[in-house]
């Protein structure tokens, strides 16, 4: 089997005495959807920040496309094809939706007109077609999440990291977004996502990693993880396992 597109090996990040990530390893297979779950404060966002170059790991290494990328700055990683969304959305508030996305498109298109055209196409693909001329600050929560996704897609990534893009959406908005994400994967983009919405995890994930207190405590297919009552009870809190199986049944 080919080497995974992304391989995180024994990575740690310490903030003073706090071990936010503590020797975590994971892999994202080419063209697959891999999901990281875990309670709040487990270190998921910190892990993503290291993969995308926003934080330098205290120790450990990160390989992407057979190259060691540990410690490379974010803009270089973006040029290598690694895109991310932010859990706390980070729009360019004064710009329109189209202009927001075009900042990403510019990575592949030097000309303004080309970048704007590409941005419109990307915007439409994630369902922002009707809002391209609105200022980003005028979007709803769901709209802002879509914008995060559109901007990341606009750089033409090979690896896409999504940090809770479904959080804060209502069930019908989640139902709208799930096929969008699946569609992206279907076009060959490798996806690594952090997600709490279990319904989506169950239906999208091919591999699930469970992060708790900075460590990977379990990994496997979603059904296996979901039925691993002990893991779920211990690390997602009491009642989570029941909820998960229930959602799996309804899905």
């Amino acid at each position: 089997m080919a080497e995974p597109l992304l391989q995180v090996e024994n990575v740690s990040k310490h903030f003073g005495g706090l071990r936010a990530v503590d020797g975590a390893s994971l892999a994202a297979e080419q063209g697959r959807i891999t999901v990281v779950i875990g309670p709040n404060g487990a270190g998921k966002t910190t892990l993503f920040a290291m993969i995308t170059g926003f934080l330098r790991p205290t120790s450990g290494s990160i390989r992407y496309d057979s190259v060691d990328i540990t410690g490379e700055p974010p803009h270089r990683l973006a040029r290598r094809g690694i895109a991310r969304t932010f859990q706390i959305v980070q729009p360019f508030p004064a710009l329109t939706v189209r202009e927001n996305i075009a900042v990403g498109s510019h990575l592949r298109h030097a000309k303004r007109a080309d970048a704007l055209a590409a941005a419109s196409a990307t915007g439409e693909a994630v369902g922002l077609g009707g809002q391209l001329d609105k200022p980003a600050s005028a979007l709803t929560v769901a709209g802002r999440k879509r914008l995060e996704l559109a901007r990341a897609l606009a750089i033409g990534p090979r690896l896409l990291l999504l940090d809770e893009v479904l959080a804060g959406l209502n069930p019908s908005e989640v139902r709208d977004m799930v096929p969008v994400i699946r569609g992206i994967a279907a076009r060959g983009v490798t996806i690594l996502m952090i997600e709490h919405v279990m319904q989506a995890v169950m239906s999208l994930a091919e591999t699930v990693y469970v992060l708790s207190e900075g460590r990977i405590i379990a990994q496997g297919r979603p059904q296996a993880i979901a039925s691993d009552r002990l893991v779920v009870e211990a690390y997602l809190g009491r009642g989570a396992a029941a909820q998960m199986t229930e959602e799996a049944v309804h899905a």
Partner: peptide, 26 residues
């Protein structure tokens, strides 16, 4: 205003981290 450089400049004014994530060498 109408160039990639200008788009990057405005982007980093509005949100530096987001600009970096999109490949801008701020």
């Amino acid at each position: 205003e109408d160039s990639r450089f200008g788009a990057y400049l405005v982007a980093l004014r509005e949100n530096e981290d987001a600009a970096k994530a999109l490949g801008v060498d701020t």
